[in-house]
Nucleic acid binder design. Structure first.
Ligand SMILES: NC(=O)c1ccc[n+]([C@@H]2O[C@H](COP(=O)([O-])OP(=O)(O)OC[C@H]3O[C@@H](n4cnc5c(N)ncnc54)[C@H](O)[C@@H]3O)[C@@H](O)[C@H]2O)c1
Ligand SMILES: NC(=O)c1ccc[n+]([C@@H]2O[C@H](COP(=O)([O-])OP(=O)(O)OC[C@H]3O[C@@H](n4cnc5c(N)ncnc54)[C@H](O)[C@@H]3O)[C@@H](O)[C@H]2O)c1
Lengths: 215, 215
DNA sequence: ATAACAATGTGAAATAAATAACAATTTATT
DNA sequence: AATAAATTGTTATTTATTTCACATTGTTAT
């Protein structure tokens, strides 16, 4: 009860950083490091040590004075906060260049997030298995989403198909969508939607490069 | 003088949205639409109409009461704000799956941002031309950055090479970096750095899906 | 002409996020 | 044992961003 309320009140930015802290911590852990200071985490993520401590405070983690944080414990706690106990199954819709890059990148990275299926409209791709992930026909979308308990979808279809794909996902009962097409899609409020477009990021970089020159 | 100061004071979020407004507006323009209301833009981007009006206020654009905003004028004004008059040349470092997806996606999209080169370490890729973009050896990085006036780089090399690649880019005089590897890199303050990692986004979606169920 | 409406533009308020400041405490040093 | 140094934890403050509230003003209908 208390935990649920806390989770909902965590700032969105904190959630993002927790994910990033964990990745950095996993690397430290692999290398045998047992403790880490807030300023060391901060350095890796180019943020301030206060920010790190504040985030950890929000999730109720206490370090040891003068020794810092226990790497293993912190990894586990972040997992308890952001991971789902049951694990979450993920599908990628559209196995083009971007979809392929994602599958390669994700597979085996996170035990609690598993890419269990991909979907495409191109008969040449349907039936293939890529990095262990089978590709199904988009016509089987609803069936497979139920059958494989897929809760999250990553959209990497051409922009012109974004709307219809999102509608199909919603109709099939998806709970979260990560949309990488440049076309914003509309979904009911009950479905968590995250959109990202690389052109926006690139134009932003270009903008700040431009205004630096105006100095 | 006045304009320079204004540009620097624009909120980062506004810059991102301007880029997105423009993309939506370009589509409207192609379809022959001459005017658009703030609430129509808002609907496309799933934000509020006030947010749109506030952003446009910040860049000093005035619409017509009851007619809304002139699509063409607004496209041009956004261009004046976020684009660089001289155009900006961009390079992609690492032509794997993600690099390829990016080249395909970007080429021909924005006239003021041109991908003029790519770099790789794999001899099989060096010398190829993909979507009109030549691939050079990473050894030529510094030379080509100067020769081709490349100001912005997109990093899509394996994570283990992120640090050395960033260092090489900085040494070569790059002005902005968009880092898509999951490894945060350190650059001098004078260089604008934007980092994005898909696992963070996916974990965020999974988190909000998870806590929805706790309701 | 006038009233009703529908839109923009913007100061003020609210919310979200980051930073500063510093107390508390452990460890190391003298 | 006392002092200095380093680090965490947290409240208060500041900054950034969004939303509210509403004045203003063309447009349409009567
Ligand atoms: N948002 C970003 O940052 C970013 C970056 C690069 C590319 N993209 C976008 O990602 C998407 C994919 O890019 P890409 O380079 O991989 O394109 P691509 O053409 O290589 O791949 C698209 C894939 O989707 C499949 N497809 C087409 N229609 C489909 C449908 N109705 N249902 C299921 N699958 C379908 C195609 O067969 C193909 O395999 C595009 O929308 C592109 O604009 C986005
Ligand atoms: N951040 C994200 O959201 C995201 C998503 C997917 C992939 N990735 C990352 O993007 C990067 C590329 O992913 P990918 O799937 O395209 O990998 P990939 O292995 O397909 O491509 C990497 C390319 O970089 C080249 N390369 C290797 N070392 C190099 C060097 N020193 N200099 C120049 N080029 C070099 C390789 O020859 C290869 O062509 C990886 O770091 C991956 O983790 C990031």
């Amino acid at each position: 009860m208390k935990i649920e309320r806390d989770l909902k009140n965590l700032p969105h930015k904190t959630i993002e950083r927790l994910s990033q802290y964990r990745r950095a911590l996993l690397i430290c852990h692999e290398q045998g490091q047992t403790h880490i200071y807030s300023h060391e985490i901060a350095k890796i993520q180019h943020i301030t040590a206060v920010q790190v401590r504040r985030d950890l405070m929000l999730i109720g983690y206490s370090g040891t004075l003068r020794k810092g944080y226990n790497v293993k414990d912190l990894i586990d706690l972040i997992g308890e906060i952001i991971d789902s106990k049951r694990g979450i199954n993920v599908a990628i819709i559209g196995i083009g260049n971007l979809g392929r890059a994602l599958i390669n990148y994700f597979v085996g990275k996170r035990s609690h997030l598993e890419i269990v299926a991909s979907f495409d409209i191109n008969p040449d791709k349907i039936g293939n298995i890529m990095s262990g992930v089978p590709c199904y026909s988009i016509d089987e979308l609803a069936d497979k989403i139920h059958e494989l308990h897929i809760e999250v979808a990553i959209m990497t279809v051409p922009a012109d198909f974004a709307t219809q794909t999102a509608d199909a996902l919603v109709a099939a009962g998806i709970k979260g969508i990560l949309n990488y097409t440049p076309k914003p899609v509309n979904v009911p409020e009950t479905i968590y939607l995250e959109e990202y477009d690389m052109i926006t990021s690139l134009e932003k970089v270009a903008f700040y490069v431009k205004i630096q020159d105006l100095n």
